[in-house]
Computed example of a mutant assay.
Amino acid sequence: MRSTISGYTRLTKVHKFSAAGIVATASAAVALAVVPNAHAAETTTVKPVAWSAESFGETQSAELTQYADAAAAQAKAAAADAVAKAEVKAEAKADQERASRSEARKPMKPAAKPAAPAPKKYADNLDGWITESLDVLRSKGIPASYEGIKRNVMRESTGNPRAINDWDVNAVNGVPSKGLLQIIDPTFKAYHVEGTSWDIWDPVANITASCNYAADKYGSMDNVNSAY
């Protein structure tokens, strides 16, 4: 027989079965309450609980509403957390892009200048003095050769950078010939080559000035084979 209880038709199948079970249980409790207990002196009457499908449905609906509200709150919190994380990620990306643009706008550092080559070293002997003098002479475009220089050095001073002539006409005139190629002070000063010492006793300066003088007078020290 179809029930005419108010609200019954709005209940789900689970609600309907649950309500029916509760009504049945309540009926059984009332039946037991009116049966005399063999050991009791008096009959005990139990007041039945007032249950209705309508009130049961309302209780279940309230619980479902609570669950729905809790789920909605969790979903809202998760969405807010996702938005916050996305904002943090977007800000980090923006910071990185700004840093990249700032780095790109920095002026390029000028290329480092190549290190200056280490100065060439020469032996402190006749070979080293002639070699160094030749490097200076070539840089100035003054002609001379190793063989021509050494040949004249050996004739004039036998390779002694402190040699001095104190007996010839120059010595008599107060300007003795000095050094490896026996040059006098006025000639040394007149033909001194820039980049060498102004000291006439300096071997390299003495050779270089003498070669400059010989180039001017004879075309090259190579063309000198006697006193000059």
Rank of each mutant, 00 (worst) to 15 (best):
E58F: 09
A19L: 12
E63L: 15
E63K: 15
A20T: 15
A115S: 08
L11R: 05
D127P: 06
S61A: 15
I207D: 01
R98M: 09
I149M: 01
V35F: 02
R2F: 09
I183W: 02
H39F: 15
V35R: 05
T4N: 12
Y146D: 02
N165K: 03
D81K: 13
A215S: 13
S177W: 05
V30G: 11
E132V: 03
V153M: 00
D95A: 13
D216C: 04
N170L: 02
A24R: 15
V14R: 12
K113N: 06
V172F: 13
A86W: 07
P119T: 14
R2S: 07
D185V: 10
D95W: 09
A73L: 15
K109L: 13
C211Y: 05
E156K: 11
N152E: 08
R105P: 01
A28Q: 15
A144E: 04
Y146K: 08
R162E: 07
K121M: 09
V23G: 05
V23A: 11
K140L: 04
A78H: 04
P36L: 05
A40R: 08
L64S: 10
S6I: 14
V172E: 11
G179C: 02
W167L: 11
A90G: 03
A41Q: 11
E42H: 14
A50V: 13
K47Q: 10
E156S: 06
W51V: 15
K150Y: 10
L134D: 09
I5E: 13
K89S: 14
A19F: 13
D216G: 03
K217Y: 11
I200V: 00
I207K: 02
A82E: 06
K113G: 02
M108F: 14
Q60I: 10
T208D: 00
A75F: 10
R162A: 08
V34Q: 02
G179L: 02
A41N: 08
S139E: 08
A123Y: 04
A33L: 06
V35Q: 04
P203L: 06
A53M: 13
F17H: 13
A163F: 07
P161G: 00
E42I: 12
A71M: 14
F56T: 03
G159A: 03
S220D: 06
W51P: 05
E87V: 14
D69C: 09
I164M: 02
S3Q: 06
Q74F: 09
A50T: 10
P143Q: 13
D216M: 10
A70N: 14
A38L: 12
R155V: 02
L32E: 10
P117V: 10
A77L: 07
I5G: 05
K47W: 11
T12V: 02
I5L: 14
V204C: 01
T25E: 08
D69H: 15
A70D: 14
A84L: 12
R2T: 09
R2Y: 08
G57F: 03
S157T: 04
G141Y: 04
R105V: 03
W51M: 12
A77Q: 06
N165Q: 03
A68W: 14
V35T: 04
S133M: 04
D124F: 07
A144D: 03
Y122E: 00
W198R: 11
T9C: 07
S139I: 10
L180H: 05
D199P: 01
A116H: 12
P143G: 10
V193L: 07
L11Y: 02
A80D: 13
V224A: 06
I149F: 00
